[in-house]
């Protein structure tokens, strides 16, 4: 959808444009029925949000003059396909004292950029590394 002023008019999308949102396994919302669950056709993977849906929501947020929320949803779109273990490892390395040097954070940023195309997330982590360096966060905590 290119005309974002129009997209916001269809909010909530699940109600007005269910065709725009697919599950991560490519199913449409209307296939997520109780019968399908009982038939074993719906797994936990089917109830996850996709990068595409997050980008649509970011567009809506931006149309509503909520640009910071939009940026967060765009970062979220980058993380949507990142596996849980990697996601938690990236969070962990950003916590104070986990990284012993800026390079620890930069390495993770590079990995997310390379493996998942997470440009925004990587930039945010690089900014963190520089701020932590300046504020002396690369120190022993426990």
């Amino acid at each position: 959808m290119t005309n974002s002023a129009k997209l916001i008019e269809f909010y909530p999308l699940a109600e007005n444009r269910p065709d725009l949102v697919l599950t991560s396994s490519g199913k449409t919302l209307d296939t997520l029925t109780l019968d399908a669950v009982m038939a074993g056709e719906v797994s936990a993977a089917d109830i996850t949000i996709t990068p595409a849906a997050l980008v649509l929501q970011a567009e809506i947020a931006r149309s509503a003059q909520r640009d910071r929320l939009a940026e967060n949803l765009e970062r979220a779109a980058e993380l949507a396909t990142v596996p849980q273990t990697v996601l938690l490892a990236a969070y962990e390395i950003l916590r104070p004292g986990r990284a012993k040097a800026a390079s620890d954070i930069l390495a993770m940023a590079e990995r997310l950029r390379r493996d998942f195309g997470a440009q925004r997330i990587a930039a945010m982590m690089e900014e963190a590394a520089s701020a932590y360096q300046r504020r002396g966060l690369f120190t022993h905590r426990y």
């Binding site: 996850t48 967060n72 949803l73 970062r75 979220a76 969070y91 104070p96 982590m125 963190a128």
Partner: peptide, 26 residues
């Protein structure tokens, strides 16, 4: 304050990451 934040075991960036992480899981 910065020190409270660090005692809370996070930084503005780790929290911002978490905010995106929650959204990434819907």
């Amino acid at each position: 304050t910065e020190q409270s934040f660090i005692d809370g075991d996070d930084t503005p960036w780790s929290k911002a990451f978490l905010a995106a992480a929650y959204a990434s899981r819907g």
